[in-house]
Amino acid sequence: MIREVIVVEGKEDTVAIRRAVEADTIETGGSAVNESVLRRVELAYERRGIIVFTDPDAPGERIRKLVSARVPGCKHAFLTKSEARGKDGIGVEHASPAAIRRALEAARGGDEQEAETGGAQIEWSDLLEAGLIVHASAAKRRERMGELLGIGYANGKQFYKRCVMFRITPEEFAAALQQLEREGI
């Protein structure tokens, strides 16, 4: 049984989670997250902790931001787009039990404010030098780096924020960058 409560988008996600692991979920009901759902999420965080596990798409990212703003310090689990791809689109509900377990085991958390006051390990210039921003293949490179670091895909600004929030170390960053280079991306 996973101790934390997993925040997902809908009923189909809950079904997929329960096929993979024993866990409790809170369903947001899609991207129009209402106040009562946010209050339940806060209570779950206070009592057991939460893991935000949304689809790797724009609505999923919107939910992730709403919950993170309300509950700083929560954990996040990410699926790659390929892991979440189904015949009907992209979503947690399409992921295999093995992919769900991998994402939950790799869930990362951290208080963004605490990370910022503790000094960011990764600097904006690191992203520039790594070709993750202002580069012809920046989006593709960020997508793969996000997979390697376990922080998901994001635009340049959000990718930097995630590096700070999840306290990505220079060593982790360098190892992922070396793998990216080995893959020729």
Rank of each mutant, 00 (worst) to 15 (best):
K81P: 04
S82R: 13
S82Q: 10
A84I: 07
R85A: 13
R85L: 11
G86M: 02
K87R: 14
D88G: 12
D88P: 00
D88Y: 12
D88R: 14
D88W: 07
G89I: 10
G89M: 08
I90Y: 07
I90P: 10
V92C: 06
E93P: 04
A95D: 10
S96N: 09
S96W: 07
P97H: 08
P97G: 02
A98S: 15
A98H: 09
A99N: 05
A99L: 06
A99G: 05
A99T: 04
I100C: 07
I100P: 14
R101L: 13
R101H: 06
L104F: 10
E105V: 07
E105H: 11
A106F: 09
R108T: 05
G109Q: 07
G109R: 08
G110H: 09
G110M: 08
D111Y: 10
D111L: 03
D111G: 01
E112Y: 13
E112W: 06
Q113M: 08
Q113L: 12
E116Y: 04
T117P: 00
T117K: 14
G118S: 13
G119W: 05
G119Y: 05
A120P: 10
A120Y: 00
A120S: 13
A120T: 03
Q121T: 07
I122L: 07
I122H: 07
E123R: 15
E123M: 06
E123D: 12
W124R: 15
S125N: 12
D126E: 08
D126F: 02
L127W: 06
L127V: 02
L128N: 02
E129C: 00
A130G: 03
G131S: 04
G131T: 01
L132H: 05
I133C: 10
I133N: 07
I133D: 09
I133F: 03
I133H: 05
I133T: 15
H135F: 05
A136W: 05
A136M: 10
A136G: 04
A138N: 03
A138P: 06
A138H: 04
A139T: 09
K140R: 15
R141E: 12
R141L: 05
E143K: 15
E143G: 00
E143W: 01
R144N: 08
M145C: 08
M145L: 13
G146R: 12
G146C: 09
G146S: 05
L148T: 00
L149E: 11
L149Q: 11
L149P: 09
I151G: 03
G152C: 05
A154F: 01
N155Q: 13
N155T: 06
G156F: 04
G156V: 02
K157S: 11
K157R: 15
K157L: 03
K157G: 01
F159G: 02
F159P: 12
K161L: 14
K161S: 13
K161Y: 00
K161N: 12
R162N: 15
R162C: 02
C163L: 14
V164L: 09
M165Y: 00
R167Y: 01
R167W: 02
R167D: 11
I168M: 11
T169A: 04
T169Y: 08
P170T: 04
E171F: 01
E171H: 06
E172C: 01
E172P: 05
E172G: 02
E172W: 10
F173D: 04
F173I: 00
A174S: 14
A175T: 12
